[in-house]
């Protein structure tokens, strides 16, 4: 038997085809799917069904609803794009009529995260580094395997990776750190290598005052003949001084990352004598060098990484990082 909503769905195409503008589509959408629609009514009635029948009826309802939603979207696309050109013919402009314009005498502002990133880039450029970049959507090879994190490794779960629907399950993802750029650089260049790689990274963190699913990191990599752990500690000292001033000290604590060995976390000193954890670092793991075709007997390297957003937060005492993505001009124009 055909349900009421199915009759409505069957007529949907035709009604939408005759819609003259976006308002009409909205009206039809409300009529078909809104609170007083057959669909909503049918959904309410699902609860009255026998549990045995409910699943099948629910699936049937959802399938019909999805069909209608697709038709509405298509109609909207038709009416918002080329289809309406004639209605705006009267407004046609010749964009090559370039009259002189007075630009308002108000400067714009760079995003605070961009400002932090520029500052970091400049510090490292001054230390002899170039700036490397890579894609944000990565394969498991670059995000994990080449970094010595095989598929079964317990550390994989700790990255809270956001995967995308491409390739095999968990084969393609939004990069969960900037370390894939290390691999891309080492695969394509002979050492010596001195690079930093700033960029966007992603984790399955729900947005709150201190977390965003999309945030920014910077990664550093040095590969040369005689790079040591002492060089890593000294390099961190140097950029911490350049960023935060002479009075701020850095320290390294042993830690674990699959792609570095020895590994460390690095902290910076606070005025009250306590330490603030800033990032992770270590000597590039021989397996990582090997994965990039670099002989670990001949070359050694160090890598480090930390959050850029955090620096902007610290610099300006920002108490809610969701402001970074709201793009409220009252926020953006403060920096």
């Amino acid at each position: 038997m055909m349900e009421g909503y199915e009759k409505a769905a069957a007529d949907a195409e035709e009604r939408l085809a005759s819609a003259a503008d976006i308002h009409a589509v909205a009206d039809i959408e409300r009529d078909l799917l809104g609170r007083r629609s057959q669909f909503t009514e049918a959904k309410r009635r699902l609860g009255d069904l026998d549990p045995g029948d409910r699943a099948a009826a629910g699936r049937r309802l959802n399938a019909a609803r999805e069909r209608v939603e697709a038709s509405v979207a298509a109609a909207r696309a038709r009416l918002t794009a080329s289809g309406r050109a004639d209605r705006y013919e009267a407004e046609r402009l010749d964009l090559t009529e370039r009259l002189p314009r007075v630009v308002p005498l108000r400067r714009g502002h760079l995003h605070p995260v961009t400002q932090a990133r520029d500052r970091l880039e400049d510090v490292f450029v001054g230390m002899g580094y170039t700036v490397a970049e890579g894609p944000e959507v990565e394969s498991a090879w670059y995000n994990f395997e080449a970094l010595n994190i095989p598929e079964w490794h317990p550390a994989r779960g700790e990255f809270d990776t956001i995967f995308v629907n491409l390739g095999q399950p968990e084969e393609v993802m939004l990069r969960s750190h900037t370390s894939p750029v290390q691999i891309r650089v080492m695969e394509n260049r002979e050492p010596p290598i001195y690079i930093v790689a700033p960029g966007r990274t992603f984790r399955t963190d729900t947005a709150d005052a201190t977390h965003l699913p999309a945030f920014n990191q910077i990664e550093g990599l040095a590969v040369d003949r005689n790079i040591t752990l002492g060089d890593l500690a000294g390099t961190i000292d140097e950029f911490v001084r350049a960023l935060f001033g002479r009075e701020v000290k850095a320290r390294l604590r042993p830690s674990y990352f699959p792609f570095t060995e020895p590994s460390a976390e690095f902290d910076i000193s606070r005025p009250d004598g306590s330490w603030l954890e800033l990032g992770g670092c270590g000597m590039v793991h021989p397996n990582v060098l090997r994965n990039c075709g670099i002989d670990p007997e001949e070359w050694q390297g160090f890598a480090f990484g930390f959050g850029i957003d955090r620096l902007a937060v610290m610099r300006h005492d920002i108490d809610d990082i969701r402001e970074f993505v709201n793009n409220d001009v009252r926020f953006l124009s403060q920096f």
């Binding site: 630009v103 308002p104 108000r106 400067r107 714009g108 502002h109 760079l110 995003h111 995260v113 961009t114 965003l212 699913p213 999309a214 970074f324 993505v325 793009n327 001009v329 953006l332 124009s333």
Partner: peptide, 11 residues
């Protein structure tokens, strides 16, 4: 920025 624009960074 010189033209008065603010840099935004939506997700």
């Amino acid at each position: 920025v010189g033209a008065g624009c603010l840099e935004s960074q939506p997700m």
